[in-house]
Structure formats: structure tokens, C-alpha cells
Nucleic acid binder design. Structure first.
Lengths: 173, 173
DNA sequence: ATATGAATGTTATATCATAACACGTCAAGG
DNA sequence: CCTTGACGTGTTATGATATAACATTCATAT
């Protein structure tokens, strides 16, 4: 069952079991981008050229990028080349739920489930730096329970894990 | 020594139900510090004056401190006044499990359960900036399960939540 | 006492992030 | 029309966080 070019029909790397698998990433990119555009249109948020391009860049790389990495690419394409240009676009994407901030890496990554109201957990390979967005509803539920015991009201979470992805585990052995 | 509210008998703010409660924090400080010293002695790690003082500072504040905050206090007491002094001591404490890094705040906080091999989750109040270290064994277990499904091997985690502590929820209402 | 490695101190610089203001665009109301 | 106000973008400048590299001191074991 190769996911090679035969249309992923709504799946692709948005399904978590492909997070670390080889796959035709262009499907994920176009799929997610299309959904983001639809969501923006629906909500009235303005997915302008810079913002859209930043999202594309994050999707193309399929890994976490620092704001300055993004900025460099933007500048090379004729957009502004000062930090706020990148930070503002990234902030917009995060606010809209189109991207996530990975604090451990001081970096940003495209959200693979825009609009799906999910609780992301990031699995960061310390060797190859790939970042997978794992489904974390159960994790979030446990965290909510722990917070509730203390009377704490959670608004936003950052759940991140550093370790080895399947491929790099093999190489380490 | 002697304090007004006498003795928490081995408990104090190391018990999670006191995380947000008023309490005589000097007990937590001395208790945790003593345990850290014992652990260091047992493992051969050298809890030198700077390192010990940094741990004390973190304990005294009972909140997350930035490296430069710590550095300022160190410098005022005659220790070195350059960033590496603080960063190295903090790194040692984190490596030993005597402190944790709170990435969301670019800050560090004393561990309230040194040597207990726990999975901390940090609850950060966005209003008063207090940070509570919540027990998160269940959270960690859920995260391990999610990672296992993807074949990812977790080594370290950062689980953080931003929201409102009980006191600030009251004020907000 | 002295060789060794660890810890500390220092200089310098790298990296990440935001405040504040200027300019252009575009749509709503005069 | 043409103004006005909100928003987005671009710019300058600076602030905040973090580490590399090297010099010096200290503890310890011989």
C-alpha cells in the first residue's frame, strides 16, 4: 500500500502513523495549505502573501524552523528581511492554529491538523532533529486532571519530548 | 530557627496539594536542600558553593527565575558576574535533578522532589507568574504510550501549561 | 609537591525576540 | 470624491537569552 503518489485522500502525513515514515510530503503540504486557506476565509483571518508563504515554508521543510531560518527564506524571495517580519507571520499562524511553537527548539512547525482542535505533543529526535506532532488527547486529559486537582485552569499547553525517532534508534544500535 | 507556623513534618510544599497554598516555605527550602546535599554526597556530584547557593536562591524565591536573575544575585554576593557562571550552575542542578528548566519562561525552578524520579508538569499562572510543579506520572504515562505507538523513544520531557492559579481565578471573576 | 581534572572566572560573541515608528493599502462613512 | 481609521508590512534599534573559547584556581590522589 504505497502512499507514493496515489492520493492520500485526506490522509497523508496528517495521520500520525506516517509521522516518521517516508511519504510523499507534497500531498500533506497542499492538503494542509488548502485547509488553512479555507479556515482563514471562513474566520475572516487574512492569510496574506507573507503569512501564506511562511506556512508553505514550514510545510515544505517538514521540521521545526527557527524564526531566522524562515526570515532568511523570506528575504531571498523579496519580502522584508528584518526579524519582525518573520515573527509576526509566525505569531499569526500560531494564533490561527496553523502552526505550533516548539519551545525546546526555539522553533516553529506547521500544524498538521489545522482546525481540528487537538492537543499536540511534539516528539523531537535529538539526532536528526525531525519533529513529529503526536496525537495527545490522552496526555492532555491527564494533564487537565492533574491541574484540576490543584484548582488550576489550563489555557494553553506545551508538551514536548526529546528522544530518538525510529530511524535513529536503528542507527544508534 | 523557629518559625511561627511550626513544622510540616516532612511535608510542606513538597506535597502537591500545597503547591498554591500559603505555607511556611522555609521548611520546604531546608528540607529540599538537605536532601539535595545527601543525594550529591551519595552520587559523588559536587554541590559547590555557587551551585548550592543557586539552589538556595531558587528555593527561596519559590518561583521560576531567569538565568540573569540568578546571576544578579550571585554577583551581589561576590560570585562571578558573567552569564556562564549562572548557566553552568543551573545546568548542573538540572542534570542532577535538583532543578528544572521551564522553557516557556526561559527560566529555572527548584525541584521539590529531588531524587524521587518523577515526571514533572509545570502549571504557570499567567497573572501572578507562580509556577507549581504538579505530579504528572499519569501524564507521562500517556505520553509514553503515544510515543510508543510511533516507535519513538523518549528521553526527556517538557510538560508545561499556562493558565490561572486558584487565587488569580478568583480575582479575575 | 606536584600532576591531573574539575570548577570557576572572563572575554567575546552568537542567537532569539520585541518595542517603536513610518509607510502603504483598503474599506467604511462623510 | 476623499478622509479616516484599522491593519499589514517594512524599518531601525535594542533588549533578552545563551554559549564558545580560553585563562585561572582549586581539590584530590598520588
Amino acid at each position: 500500500m504505497s502512499d507514493d503518489s496515489s492520493s492520500v485522500a485526506g490522509h497523508g502525513c496528517t495521520t500520525s502513523d506516517l509521522a516518521f515514515a517516508d511519504h510523499d510530503h507534497s500531498h500533506c503540504t497542499s492538503d494542509v495549505l488548502a485547509r488553512a486557506e479555507a479556515l482563514a476565509k471562513a474566520s475572516g483571518a487574512r492569510l496574506t502573501p507573507v503569512r501564506r508563504r511562511v506556512l508553505e515554508i514550514l510545510l515544505e521543510e517538514h521540521k521545526a524552523l527557527g524564526a531566522y531560518d524562515v526570515l532568511q527564506r523570506l528575504a531571498a524571495e523579496g519580502f522584508g528581511n528584518q526579524p519582525p517580519v518573520a515573527y509576526r507571520a509566525l505569531e499569526f499562524l500560531v494564533d490561527q492554529g496553523f502552526a505550533h511553537r516548539v519551545r525546546r527548539l526555539n522553533a516553529f512547525t506547521a500544524c498538521m491538523h489545522p482546525g481540528e482542535a487537538h492537543a499536540p505533543a511534539f516528539l523531537i529526535c535529538k539526532t536528526c532533529a525531525i519533529v513529529a506532532e503526536a496525537p495527545a488527547e490522552a496526555v492532555r486529559a491527564a494533564l487537565d486532571a492533574a491541574a484540576k486537582d490543584l484548582g488550576f485552569a489550563i489555557e494553553r499547553t506545551n508538551i514536548e519530548a526529546l528522544g530518538l525517532c525510529p530511524a535513529c534508534q536503528g542507527q544508534a544500535a
